[in-house]
Structures are given as structure tokens and as C-alpha cells.
């Protein structure tokens, strides 16, 4: 539509572009947020059948406070996510250190092995875990879910911590070693402080992966034990009530809070060197 380039100045052309870009992005943000907003609004509506007109109430949140199944599921979810965060962050950071500071045979293979857990559809991994854990007697339950969640979070931790490690070379550590620090002191006093933002970001990532994980938990949940997403899924399939909206709204707020925290620590997509240029 800018075919007559001679007649239009670059400036005017860019302004039209900016306008169109703004409209398109606004439409997309609408598409992305509209359903979530609708769900949250309905959590505060009195009608069980989501009927309008809107009559404000907090009754669904009060019901939630009395719903023991959901509370137990929430406790499970948070506990699982915390345990997952600690284990995945520690193991993943260790592996990332090995990748960043050593060259060794089989490194490429080990890196490649990080892909299956994140590229194979969760349905396949989840059912495979169910088969295996049932077969060898690990069984289902929170411990089985923890096994699964850590495996899914590990690759992300290795990548995020690895990116941070790649941003500063081994020179600092070598300097510390030359000055007489032993490997542990070097790690404690030099590597860890510089690495900290990456580790914190990876930990938040791991928390989010576990807290939002549904498919794996679903297959590994025995009757009577569940996490929040599993509980919500069964509630939805039984026919939904505004209580589901209420708990879902809380989850959305918590998840988004974690990501905003993550974004503060770990700027992604931004162009670090040039602020306003294109």
C-alpha cells in the first residue's frame, strides 16, 4: 500500500506503519486478555449459571475458603512447586557449570539429551511415566509427580543459568585461583555472586513450570491426591461453577506475579545496548 514511495516521505510512511502496528497489537492484546478478564469478572458474579446482569458478590471466594479439596490441592501444588524449584535449580545449575567451564567428550550428546523432555508432547511423557512408575513400584502420588516435574524443569534451568554463565568468561575464576583461593572458595566468593541473578531467574522459571504443570500431574495423580490444575480439570469436566472461576483467577494472579518478578530480574527480548533505535 506504500507503492507510491516517491510521493510519501519516509517519515509519513513510518507514522502510518506505527499506527497500523499499534492497532494490530491492540487487537491481539484484546484477544489474549479478553477471555481471562471475562473469567475473572464472572468469579464476582452472583449467578451460578454465569447469567447477566452482573450482580457483584464475593460469595465464590468465600466458598473457596471452605472447600477442603481445593485447599488440600493448593497446598500440594505449592509444596510440589517449592520442592521442584530447589532440586531442579541445584541439579540444573551444577550441569550448567560443567557445560560452561569444561570441554569434554560427549558434551554435545548431553546437551542434545536436554531436548526430549521439552520437545516430546507431555501426553507421551506423562503416560510413559505412568507405565514405568507403576511397573517398577514407584507408583503414583506426589513423589512421582516430583520426579516428573524436576525432569521437565531441569532443561530450562540449564539453559537459563547457562546463558548467564556464558555472559562472563572463566577469567574471574582463574584470577581468584591464581590469588590462592581453593575451588570451593572460588565458587562461593566469585562464581555464585555473579551467577546469582541467573540462578534466581531459573528458580522462578522452575517454580512456574511446576505450578502450571497439568498433564504430567494428571496421569500421576492417584485417587484422592491432586494438585490445583488436576482438581480444576475434574471440576470443569463435572460441569463448571463460578468457584472454578474464583480459584482460576487466583492462579492467574499468582502466576503472572511470578513472571513479572522474573521479568524484573531477567530482561528478555530487550535490546541491551541500544535503547530506542530500530
Amino acid at each position: 500500500m506504500n507503492g507510491g514511495a516517491q510521493a510519501v516521505t519516509p517519515r509519513a510512511r513510518r507514522d502510518t506503519g506505527t499506527w497500523l502496528a499499534g492497532i494490530w497489537l491492540a487487537l491481539i492484546l484484546g484477544f489474549l486478555y479478553l477471555p481471562i478478564a471475562a473469567m475473572a469478572v464472572m468469579a464476582f458474579n452472583e449467578s451460578v449459571l454465569y447469567e447477566l446482569p452482573f450482580k457483584p458478590t464475593t460469595i465464590w471466594f468465600e466458598r473457596l475458603a471452605e472447600n477442603e479439596r481445593l485447599i488440600r490441592a493448593s497446598v500440594n501444588s505449592i509444596g510440589l512447586a517449592l520442592a521442584n524449584t530447589v532440586i531442579a535449580t541445584v541439579l540444573g545449575t551444577m550441569a550448567a557449570l560443567a557445560f560452561a567451564r569444561y570441554t569434554f567428550r560427549g558434551k554435545t550428546l548431553l546437551r542434545l539429551l536436554l531436548f526430549p523432555p521439552i520437545t516430546i508432547p507431555w501426553l507421551i511423557i506423562g503416560t510413559a511415566m505412568l507405565v514405568m512408575f507403576f511397573w517398577i513400584g514407584i507408583g503414583r502420588g506426589l513423589h512421582a509427580m516430583l520426579l516428573g516435574h524436576v525432569a521437565l524443569s531441569l532443561p530450562y534451568v540449564v539453559v537459563v543459568v547457562g546463558a548467564r554463565l556464558a555472559s562472563f568468561g572463566p577469567a574471574l575464576e582463574e584470577a581468584a585461583a591464581t590469588l590462592g583461593a581453593n575451588p570451593w572458595q572460588t565458587f562461593r566468593r566469585v562464581t555464585l555472586p555473579v551467577l546469582a541473578p541467573g540462578v534466581v531467574a531459573a528458580a522462578l522459571f522452575a517454580f512456574a513450570v511446576s505450578f502450571d504443570q497439568f498433564v504430567i500431574s494428571y496421569f500421576l495423580a492417584p485417587p484422592g491426591v491432586s494438585t490445583l490444575p488436576v482438581e480444576i480439570y475434574s471440576a470443569i469436566r463435572k460441569g463448571f461453577t463460578p468457584e472454578v472461576n474464583a480459584v482460576s483467577s487466583i492462579i492467574i494472579v499468582v502466576s503472572m506475579g511470578v513472571v513479572l518478578l522474573f521479568a524484573r530480574l531477567y530482561r528478555f527480548g530487550g535490546v541491551p545496548s541500544e535503547g530506542g533505535g530500530r
Binding site: G17, T18, L25, L29, L32, M39, V259, G276
Partner: peptide, 26 residues
Amino acid sequence: RYVPGRWREALLLMVVLPFWSNALVR
């Protein structure tokens, strides 16, 4: 290419944000 730099990061974050909330809930 068209969004000025100071808006860019905020918009990108807004696009990615819902993606990080629970898939089931969305």
C-alpha cells in the same frame, strides 16, 4: 520494527504474560 523502543519491552512482556499463566485455566 514499528514500535518505539520504550514501548517495545512492555508490549512484549504483555504478550508473553498470559502464556505463563496456567494453560488449563486459559
